[in-house]
Amino acid sequence: MSSTYTHQLYTCVNDLPQKWDHVSESCIFLQSNYLGVLEKSSPANMQCTFVGVFEKDELIATALFQEIDLALLTTFGDRDHFLLTRLRNFLFRQYASKLLLVGNNMLSGQNAYACLPGTNEEKVLETIKNICDTWPNKPHLTIFKDFTQDQTKPFNTAKFSSDYPFSSQPNMIFEIKSNWKREDDYVLDLTKKYRDQFKRCRKKGSSLRNQELSLEEIIQNEEILYSLYLHVAINSPFNTFILPFNHFSIFKKQLGSDFILRGYYENEKLVGFTSVIRHGKELETYFLGYDVSIQREKMLYLNMLYDLIDCGIVQGFERIIFGRTALEIKSSVGAEAVPLKGIMRHSFGVIHTNLSWIFPLLEPKAKWIQRHPFKD
């Protein structure tokens, strides 16, 4: 007879079991240093809970829950016609504003849970689903997010059979070839059209200077960094949160050298930044910001993407996780789209049974063209 799994909920990193990071070894975003970022610097409309799953007294799995209240935002973005935007915002506020996410809405990919090797994942997920079903602050929507096709296999149980499966925008993944040792090797593998794009971009951005910022430099420049981030965030197609003012300095304090924030300067004025996280053999892009007044002239965003590729090559990473925004321009530098899937349940039965046609209205499909910049 199999033993029963139990669980414990935590909101403070200091209360986590001693073996938490060992169980979460496969995912830096479930380890205590990163969870400390969420504890100290989550968006105002987000509450994070850390979940431990136990077999008898042994911790065998960890998970992240995020409660998000979209009603606290002034806008969800303006990607549709004015009337469609107003209708979508109304529907969100009334019927989809209170979310319970199993996963991390600030990142792309499977950062929802981690298990010890050999653990029964189906049983872990059923335990997590039971927690969701009895969650005290009843959400409109309960969502398990960002799984590849293979990662959805443990969900094929009776416990999830009536939940609605959905596809979200893909994760853009850049694979670094083993024979690339420097940026020139990457450029040589591009077709003429995209080599010309690279050269034109680098020429336009030749006056830009970039450097990695230390914790002290991040703190000194926090106000301008935040204003650069905020401009990009509030003009994005869809918002579910806004980072707090001190988020980047807290991130640097918590992760140290695993968090890299690089500032871009024009005539010694800070005009943009990128941030990335070292995650094993992967380089995970995080938030960025830029001065819109020079973005087009200097091709700043595209220069940032090329610099991230250069960083990944030189530092020996195997891939770069570019996330799910600006899909077409990321594909033009060589990133490939990896489909992501999830499952959801609405608390209103009538809405839940009609999610198959309601969800596409609230989450319209992005229109973009996958570019193919490499030879052959």
Rank of each mutant, 00 (worst) to 15 (best):
S2N: 13
T6H: 08
T11S: 12
N14L: 13
D15G: 03
Q18D: 10
W20P: 05
V23T: 13
S26K: 13
G36Y: 00
G36K: 05
E39D: 00
K40C: 07
S42D: 03
K56M: 07
I60R: 03
T62L: 05
A63Q: 06
E67M: 08
E67D: 09
I68Y: 05
A71K: 12
L72C: 07
L72D: 10
L72A: 13
L73D: 10
L73Y: 06
G77V: 03
D78Q: 14
D78W: 02
R86Q: 15
L87M: 14
L87T: 11
N89H: 15
L91Q: 05
R93Q: 12
Y95N: 10
A96R: 00
A96K: 04
K98W: 03
L99I: 15
N105M: 11
N105F: 02
N105E: 11
N105C: 12
M106I: 09
L107T: 15
Y113W: 11
P117F: 11
P117G: 01
G118V: 06
G118R: 01
G118I: 05
T119H: 03
E121L: 00
E126M: 09
E126H: 02
E126G: 06
D133W: 05
N137A: 14
P139Y: 11
T142Q: 12
T142A: 09
I143H: 04
F147G: 00
Q149A: 10
Q151S: 06
P154N: 02
P170F: 02
P170A: 07
P170H: 04
I173M: 09
N179P: 00
D185R: 07
L188M: 12
D189F: 05
D189P: 01
T191C: 10
D196Y: 11
Q197K: 09
F198E: 12
K199G: 04
R202C: 08
L208S: 01
L208E: 03
N210P: 04
S214A: 08
I219K: 10
N221C: 03
S227Q: 15
S227K: 15
S227M: 10
L228Q: 12
H231F: 07
V232T: 15
A233M: 09
A233W: 00
S236D: 09
F238R: 13
F241H: 11
I242T: 11
I242G: 02
F245M: 02
K252Y: 04
K253H: 09
Q254V: 03
Y265F: 15
E266T: 04
G272A: 05
G272L: 01
F273E: 01
V276D: 06
R278D: 08
L283C: 04
G289T: 02
Y290H: 13
D291W: 04
S293D: 12
M299A: 13
M304F: 02
L308N: 12
D310L: 07
G312V: 05
V314R: 08
Q315R: 08
R319D: 02
R324F: 05
T325C: 10
T325Q: 11
I329H: 01
K330I: 09
V333N: 00
G334A: 07
A335K: 02
E336L: 11
E336C: 12
G342S: 05
M344N: 06
T353S: 13
S356P: 00
S356Y: 07
W357A: 07
I358H: 06
P360N: 06
K365T: 13
H372W: 08
D376C: 13
